[in-house]
């Protein structure tokens, strides 16, 4: 569904991604790990189409109606409408826009693009109620302005709520576990697991094994200096938890020489 080939990208003149190769198929969960500054967030932002990130070479293709199309040619809102979702590491506060209006606007735009009928007010509320329940969120969240005055945990839950409403085919979750206490982490994981199906894929950017205990990955990739230096199964994450990144970095730099 997602195919990244030799992707290079820069932001503010700095080369961050230096030849990423990644294939994600429906039904898979991928975890992307790596030390700070290795390019993990950049990768998810480039796929979502953040305008500050410039792709300098390489390809990203995505399955749209059973055809792999060039994702980089699509505007970011169209990427979202085609089923790509970016869960922000730092969700943005938008004073003056209520969560409900934001969710409705977003849901309606995505439905219109996909040729699905809009839901009327009460049906949409019902859908929201269902999803709020999974995330153990109060209905009052809907009346509040987007992320304004939310705690770290509430912001992340709000990201997962948006994801649950939009039901994306590919969810890129950028450090969704950071800033969460153990209970919130469990709830967020429950929300992500509820979305998983054989049609959807999840890419988790994370630093910690504790998230991967709850959302079990099929593949684990280690990103370092803009390249994937190691891929493996879930046991790789366990090994990283025990041994850190140094041995891998040494291994990969040894290979170069």
């Amino acid at each position: 569904m997602l195919e990244v080939k030799n992707l290079c990208a820069k932001v503010e003149g700095n080369d961050i991604l230096k030849g990423i190769n990644l294939t994600v198929k429906p039904g898979e969960v991928h975890a992307i790990m790596g030390p700070n500054g290795s390019g993990k967030s950049t990768l998810s932002k480039v796929i979502a189409g953040h305008p500050a990130y410039e792709v300098t070479s390489g390809e990203v293709s995505f399955d749209v109606n059973r055809k792999q199309i060039n994702l980089l040619e699509l505007d970011p809102d169209v990427r979202a409408k085609e089923g790509i979702f970016l869960g922000f590491q730092y969700p943005i506060e938008i004073p003056g826009v209520s969560n409900l209006d934001f969710l409705r606007e977003s849901f309606n735009e995505v439905c219109a693009h996909q040729g699905i009928d809009k839901l009327d007010e009460s049906a949409f509320r019902d859908l929201l109620r269902q999803k709020l329940k999974i995330l153990d969120m109060d209905e009052r969240f809907l009346e509040r302005d987007v992320n304004v005055g939310f705690s770290g945990g509430e912001k992340k839950k709000n990201e997962i709520l948006q994801m649950a409403i939009l039901n994306p085919r590919l969810a890129l979750l950028d450090e969704t576990d950071s800033g969460l206490d153990i209970d919130a982490l469990r709830i967020v994981a429950k929300g992500v697991n509820a979305l998983k199906s054989k049609f959807n894929a999840v890419v988790l950017v994370t630093h910690y094994q504790r998230l991967l205990d709850l959302i079990v990955p099929d593949y684990v990739h280690v990103l370092y200096k803009g390249k994937i230096i190691k891929s493996g199964d879930k046991s790789l994450a366990l090994e990283l938890e025990k041994r850190g990144y140094d041995w891998l970095i040494e291994e990969s730099e040894g290979k170069k020489q």
Partner: peptide
């Protein structure tokens, strides 16, 4: 704000609507 704008756009909202 570009970041706020991208946040809305990344949820499928058209740039002019954002």
């Amino acid at each position: 704000d570009d970041e706020a704008s991208f946040y809305l756009i990344s949820r499928g909202i058209r740039p002019e609507m954002a």
